[in-house]
Design a protein around this nucleic acid. Structure first.
Length: 339
DNA sequence: AACGGCTGCAACCGCGTGTAC
DNA sequence: CGTACACGCGGTTGCAGCCGT
């Protein structure tokens, strides 16, 4: 939503940037809000072709957008595993806590909040939580360093104090960072209630009644059509009881860490329409190979990788062991991620 | 109803990093 | 090693809609 250079007929900015390979082809790249048609093009391309080079995607999908714009649109809005809607109190609490530890590392925070994007969390923080904490810290005038600083230890304004010792203690205990129970709980987080909608766009943003036809058959099989005709996410039809999942919350691990080494196990999407949702999904983000093989052997890469798709990252030198840090969930005895 | 201020959030920008050549 | 390109991240912008007057 930038200041338009030149407005297209649907209020979309058209910039005169050129992406020519031979100086003869000059494309006018669109900017600004995405139209439903553009969204559909991108979704269709991603579903059928899978993820690849974004500039290629932009070109091959027939979008007059730069690859960067396509990537952003997909990651922040179109990808199926996004959870939309207001943040729950539990999520708010978790964001506050994570921000107290991680600071403005939105992508890492987002990696802990399945279905949420870094952009979404960042916006939520800047627009809501920051103000709330500021007010809270103003009320608590005893704290001299109340600010919206990004310093992890400053931000909390006394709400959830964490001292150096706590931090270090938590950092040291990272031994149990990989557990199937946390995986299960993560699934439970996703599955509890039907909040999780792998096609939020389809069911919420646009009434895609009858529009699922453009989807690959394999994908269409994942959609439920309710009486109202609106397409609802098929993966949302979950029953935690059947899944035997724990209801107590444990923080989902960074997707960059492989939880279950099932990355080599193809997933038959059809089987997941009823149960075992994503149980075999690989959370290993490092290899960028979230292969989901459908019953027709259409391999869809990364389409349904949980967590925040491409946003987890390997820790670099000098970073804390956030994984170990996250293990101490005593901060959130009531967190169950029920939204 | 009209207006103006405020807020939420989608999208862009700039920069750092990784990788291929 | 240097360069080019693509990707990912955090910061910022500005439109659209809400709300109070």
């Amino acid at each position: 939503m930038r200041k338009p250079d030149m407005m297209g007929k649907d209020n979309t900015t058209i910039t005169t940037a050129t992406i020519n390979t031979n100086n003869s082809i000059k494309s006018k790249l669109r900017k600004g809000l995405w139209s439903p048609e553009e969204d559909e093009k991108l979704i269709r391309y991603m579903i059928t072709k899978g993820q690849g080079c974004w500039s290629d995607i932009a070109r091959n999908a027939g979008l007059q957008r730069c690859g960067k714009s396509c990537r952003l649109r997909w990651i922040n809005y179109l990808r199926p595993d996004l959870k939309r809607g207001a943040f729950s109190p539990q999520e708010e609490e978790l964001i506050i806590h994570l921000h107290s530890i991680l600071g403005n590392r939105w992508s890492q925070i987002a990696a802990r909040l399945p279905g949420r994007t870094d952009n979404e969390i960042k916006n939520f923080w800047n627009s809501t939580l920051k103000k709330r904490l500021k007010i809270s810290s103003n009320n608590n005038t005893s704290s001299p360093n109340n600010s919206d600083s990004s310093d992890p230890r400053d931000v909390m304004g006394g709400i959830m104090p964490m001292n150096e010792h706590d931090l270090m203690t938590m950092c040291m205990d990272s031994s149990s960072s990989t557990s199937s129970s946390s995986m299960q709980s993560m699934h439970a987080n996703m599955a509890l209630t039907d909040q999780f909608d792998p096609f939020p766009l389809l069911s919420n943003r646009y009434d895609m009644t009858g529009a699922a036809g453009f989807l690959d058959n394999n994908m269409a099989a994942c959609l439920n059509h309710n009486d109202d005709g609106v397409v609802h996410g098929g993966y949302g039809a979950l029953d935690p009881n059947k899944m035997g999942l724990e209801s107590d919350f444990s923080l989902p691990p960074l997707e960059s860490r492989s939880i279950e080494d099932n990355s080599s196990t193809p997933i038959d999407v059809k089987t997941h329409n009823n149960n075992n949702h994503f149980k075999n999904s690989s959370f290993n983000n490092t290899d960028h190979h979230h292969h989901i093989q459908t019953s027709n052997n259409v391999v869809v890469e990364d389409l349904f990788g949980f967590g925040n798709h491409g946003q987890g990252e390997n820790f670099r030198m000098g970073e804390w062991d956030f994984e170990g840090l996250m293990q101490d969930m005593s901060y959130f005895p009531s967190l169950d991620f029920q939204v």
